[in-house]
């Protein structure tokens, strides 16, 4: 690995100072499970690594006024095990629990997973389904970016070099919002997704779908929402035929490539089948099928 300088700001203010000072020469470290690998492989060569401190708001994990606040340094392990997340955002807990290994989850953070912006980042489809809001702060200003407007391409986001992702805010949608997540990988542990699918559906008392989210990972340059598919579902009472149609629309939203993990054709088919499987499980309440 190349030589670099390391900064350890004590709090938010100092972090913003460092980020402003170093700009593009600096890289924020919030766990380092991706960053250090990228540096070892020479893919990133920052002059300075700025470690995000383990202090508020980076470590926040709480519910206030119907909003769950998750600090950027909250680890995958915390998301996996936190009673709050397990109860209120089970889809995020599950997705976080499927990242890497126990050791990686003890170190890797939600902020890192988001800012790394891998198309295969496991928590990202879950966060898309949950309408997460990202708080981007820099010296003297703060903006909120909905997660579906954050990603531009593999490793590319709307974040400016001097901006720091401080926390993620997720609105709590209540019991009628049913979510599902499926990570497809050849190995059941310590593997990168071939396809990630997350869904969220909000049904009213008559069984009609009021609102829906379908998010896909590893099948496009960024994690995506299948908006046409979501729209098709809204206002409808779900049937097998409808779910099939919706799954085909989700497939249409994807643009997978062939790589060493799977062929484009295979991924394409999996988007359809997994979307269908998850929607069927959530809406038709049939006995769950399939395994990982």
């Amino acid at each position: 690995m190349h030589s670099f300088d390391y900064r350890a700001p004590k709090d938010l203010e100092e972090t913003l100072e460092e980020a402003a000072h170093w700009g593009e020469k600096g890289r924020l470290l919030a766990g380092g499970t991706d960053l250090i690998l990228f540096m070892e492989r020479g893919r990133l060569r920052p002059e300075v690594v700025i470690e995000v401190p383990r202090t508020e708001p980076f470590t926040t994990l709480e519910e206030t006024n119907g909003m769950i606040r998750i600090g950027a340094r909250v680890t995958m392990g915390q998301l996996e095990h936190s009673p709050l997340i397990r109860e209120k955002l089970p889809v995020l807990s599950q997705a976080a629990g499927e990242v890497g290994s126990v050791q990686i989850r003890n170190l890797a953070t939600i902020g890192g997973n988001i800012v790394t912006a891998s198309p295969a980042g496991d928590t990202l489809p879950a966060l898309l389904v949950l309408d997460a809001q990202l708080m981007l702060q820099k010296k003297g200003s703060l903006r909120t970016v909905p997660i579906d407007q954050f990603f531009l391409g593999p490793g590319q986001t709307v974040r400016e070099p001097d901006e720091v992702l401080t926390e993620v805010r997720v609105p709590v949608k209540g019991d009628r919002f049913v979510t599902q997540f499926y990570k497809l990988a050849v190995r059941s542990y310590m593997d990168i997704a071939i396809v990630d699918v997350a869904i969220g559906v909000y049904t009213n008392g008559d069984g009609a779908v009021e609102d829906a989210r379908i998010a896909l990972g590893s099948v496009a340059p960024t994690p995506i929402r299948a908006r046409e598919a979501e729209e098709r579902l809204k206002g409808q009472v779900p049937t097998e035929t409808l779910i099939d149609e919706v799954a085909l629309l989700a497939q249409k939203a994807s643009s997978p490539i062939t790589d060493q993990r799977g062929s484009a054709e295979y991924r394409w088919l999996m988007v359809y089948r997994l979307t269908k499987r998850l929607l069927t499980n959530a809406l038709l309440n049939s006995s769950a099928s399939g395994h990982r």
């Binding site: 497809l184 295979y266 999996m270 089948r273 997994l274 499987r277 099928s289 399939g290 395994h291 990982r292």
Partner: peptide, 10 residues
């Protein structure tokens, strides 16, 4: 056990 929808073999 093979999941014939995903092709995953366990």
């Amino acid at each position: 056990e093979v999941d014939t929808e995903t092709g995953i073999v366990r």
